[in-house]
Design a protein around this nucleic acid. Structure first.
Length: 732
RNA sequence: GCUAGCGUAGCUCAAUUGGCAGAGCUCCGGUUUUGUAAACCGGAGGUUGUGGGUUCGAGUCCCACCGCUAGCUCCA
């Protein structure tokens, strides 16, 4: 016998092989039908497995999970992924199974399949899934040892599963499989008792992916779907998705004329239209004022810098692929540069030229005016490379700056520094250019030209902690000012297994420890992500979600022990000897582009008074009141408001409708009555008609709301489309 | 960059099997002089992303390029 304890404390005596389903059946038939999975000490498990196998705890702390419990949906969606895979295997020949986890409200399954799956095929797939669900076949779990498992996968022609057993699961003695009719899949589970519990589902999209996320691995087809316990929920979810698309910053940016991106200018290069530019400028003024209070010094630096500068910093070699090509003053520059890379054994993408190709390269270079004393035509690749490099070094080469730090470092170096000067804080809205992959570009959220609200703080090692703490405070301050509360803090640390990082382990350990300490002291809940650090140091990132639930990095604070080393930065200490400062890179907004993009979605285009491009619009009742309207507008402008007037010959209803649709915070309706008593009829975008008030009263009210930076409405995102962390666990 | 899909007026979208490119909004002109989410009439606006091809005939079919979207990969 085995003792089972239910959440309400009830103790049950059950047979040795009792399952959660049996326990449910013992309570009521209805509960048995409703039981989707079980939870034992917060572990979600199969309801159809004997409890004794699942835990050593006695009594077994059992919680039955029904469709009302959130973890149950994850189990059901994972089972639905199996159902989808089964349907696809029925419809296509030679389907190789990869992974099929749950991600938030959705699930996907990766397939190795030569025939492309198209959107047109979704109805067919869904119809087949419906058949499977209707049959209500059970999910049956069984286990095998390694050899048997490999044999089984081999019999099923599932090569990827075999590879996974041999590599990813090399430490597993026993492996579990789930069978559902003819469909058998290596899978950790858990699953729902039978397919009939999937009440509503939809195949959403198909996209490419790679086996185990590695581009050098074969590409797979990833089919996304979603599933719910009832049709209404599915419908609501799909509707919510549609709603979310309406506040997409690309849609609103176009409708509200905030920005535009023209292919004629270039991919990922955004053009700030006056209204968007006003929002940006307002934010810039806001943070400039705060930086002044925090003893930052403003600086300016040019948009280009010598390639050598970035070679010294390490950015050029490390990020070359995502930078715009260097600008050479010599016509042969690009050619020689290409040639050098061909001769570089480290460059995996390019192979050394053949003799024939090399002759052509040399001829072309000569035509372009390349000249060296004696080019080692019959020399080794290394000799040639050295000669070409010598030539290249003599040329002027510039890079569109991908980072501001090297420029700021030079500013630090321009003046001898004493410990008394530190911390030195150099701030600049620095515009940088990065050649992001075309498939990555996304409205304002991922662009090729961006302006960081950047600053570099140079301090003594002893000051790092306080400086880092103050900077976190600044990031929180700016997020607070716009009412962004729904963010996640991420501490990105070094991946101990990788060699991409610079600096000693000890330095990294100390730096990471400092960051952890300060984050904890500041009461910030954070998630540590090993391997996400910059190559020069650990960082703290503030992550927010866009309208489709995708996560983006906004503010960032990064520690850097590397650049001071590379540029040999110094300050004179109390001992009258040179010491090395520490650098902090930080950008509370991140980039103006991304921040404004996120804000557009955060406010669904309806900006609070202090940020709205047009804060107030004065609406004369008819042409008779045009002059008074102009007068009111002009007086408000004197008070620093951004004011428009609507002098169309239209009814006031139409003018109001236009202003509402343009999401203007306040409308002032003025007619003869108002003109007579120096009054305005105030209409608020949110609350509607507020009635007539004297001009001065209205002004006081508006000024207060603006100067307090009052936020009256933000969009709360309810739906979860990103990985909630439970997904990958569901798959072996 | 990769996989898949998409590209018709400034915007949102129509255009049967390949058979005369169309509507609403915006915009412009006129009438109207208006009290809290659309007054009325008229007009303009297009080499259907670009370039080739198939065809008597292409918005529609094929190829290449450009761009966009989703996902993957990348992200200083």
């Amino acid at each position: 016998m085995i003792q089972v304890q239910l959440p309400d404390g009830t103790l049950l005596e059950e047979e040795d092989h009792v399952t959660a389903l049996d326990v449910a059946a013992g309570i009521s038939d209805g509960l048995k039908r409703a039981t989707v999975a079980a939870s034992i000490a917060d572990n979600v498990v199969d309801a159809m497995r004997p409890l004794a196998e699942l835990t050593d705890l006695r009594p077994v702390p059992l919680q039955l999970l029904t469709s009302r419990d959130a973890p149950a949906a994850t189990v059901m969606r994972h089972s639905c992924a199996h159902v989808m895979a089964r349907a696809i295997m029925r419809l296509y020949e030679g389907v190789g199974l990869a992974f099929g986890p749950v991600k938030g409200n959705t699930f996907y399954y990766d397939f190795d399949l030569a025939t492309p799956i198209r959107e047109d095929d979704f109805p067919r797939i869904e119809a087949e899934m419906k058949k499977i669900v209707k049959e209500k076949e059970p999910f049956e779990r069984f286990t095998m040892n390694r050899d048997e498992s490999i044999q089984l996968c081999s019999d099923l022609s599932q090569k990827l599963k075999i590879e996974h057993i041999e590599t990813g699961l090399s430490d597993h003695e026993s492996l579990s499989f789930y069978r559902q009719g003819e469909f058998v899949d290596l899978c950790r589970g858990p699953h729902i008792p039978h397919a009939g519990m999937i009440k509503a589902f939809k195949v959403l999209s198909v996209a490419g992916s790679h086996w185990k996320g590695d581009v050098s691995n074969p590409s797979l087809q990833r089919v996304y779907g979603t599933a719910f316990f009832d049709k209404k929920q599915l419908k609501a979810y799909l509707q919510q998705l549609e709603e979310a698309k309406k506040r997409d910053h690309r849609v609103l940016g176009n409708r509200l004329q905030l920005f535009t991106i023209s292919p004629d200018v270039g991919q990922g290069l955004c053009l700030w239209l006056p209204k968007g530019a006003t929002i940006r400028a307002t934010l810039e003024e806001f943070i400039k004022a705060e930086l002044l209070r925090r003893s930052y010094d403003p600086v300016y630096s040019p948009h280009i810098g010598r390639v050598e500068l970035y070679e010294t910093s390490g950015h050029f070699p490390y990020y070359r692929d995502s930078q715009f090509a260097p600008l050479f003053s010599h016509s042969a520059g690009q050619l020689v540069d290409y040639w050098i890379r061909c001769l570089d054994p480290e460059d995996a993408d390019l192979t050394p030229p053949t003799d024939e190709e090399e002759r052509k390269l040399l001829d072309a270079a000569l035509v372009l005016g390349f000249s060296v004393e004696d080019f080692p035509v019959s020399g080794s690749a290394n000799e040639k490379r050295d000669v070409l490099r010598m030539w290249e070094k003599r040329q002027e080469r510039y890079l569109l700056k991908p980072m501001n730090c090297p420029h700021h470092v030079q500013m630090y170096k321009a003046i001898p520094r004493s410990y008394r000067d530190l911390p030195v804080r150099l701030a600049e809205f620095g515009t940088v250019y990065r050649h992001e992959q075309s498939g990555e570009l996304n409205g304002l959220l991922r662009v090729r030209g961006l302006t960081q609200d950047d600053a570099h703080q140079f301090c003594t090692p002893e000051q790092v902690e306080q400086e880092f703490k103050d900077t976190l405070g600044l990031v929180k301050y700016v997020l607070d000012a716009v009412g962004l509360e729904d963010y996640r803090v991420q501490l990105s640390t070094k991946d101990p297994g990788s060699d991409k990082y610079v600096g000693s382990d000890e330095l990294w350990q100390n730096a990471q420890e400092t960051l952890r300490k300060v984050l904890t002291e500041e009461g910030l809940d954070y998630i540590e992500t090993p391997g996400e650090a910059a190559f020069y140091g650990p960082k703290t990132d503030f992550m927010v979600k866009d309208c489709l639930g995708r996560e983006w990095q906004l503010g960032t604070v990064q520690l850097d022990y590397n650049l001071p080393e590379r540029f040999e930065l110094e300050y004179i200490g109390t001992d009258n000897k040179p010491h090395r400062p520490v650098m902090i890179h930080r950008a509370p907004f991140g980039s103006m582009e991304r921040f404004v993009g996120v804000l557009i979605e955060h406010f669904a285009g309806a900006f609070p008074l202090w940020l709205a491009p047009e804060q107030i619009r004065v609406l004369p009742l008819s042409e008779k009141s045009d002059d008074y309207a102009k007068d009111v507008a002009s007086r408000l402008r004197q008070e620093g408001f951004r004011v428009g007037t609507d002098l169309q010959s239209a009814r006031v209803q139409a003018k109001i409708r236009d202003a509402q649709l343009e999401l203007i915070p306040y409308m002032l309706v003025v007619g003869p009555r108002e003109a007579e008593q120096n009054a305005v009829a105030v209409r608020c975008r949110i609350d509607g008609d507020l009635g007539v008030m004297g001009f001065d009263d209205a002004l006081t009210r508006l000024k207060k709301e603006r100067d307090d930076r009052t936020i009256r409405q933000v969009v709360k995102s309810e739906f979860v489309a990103v990985d909630d962390g439970t997904g990958e666990l569901a798959e072996y």
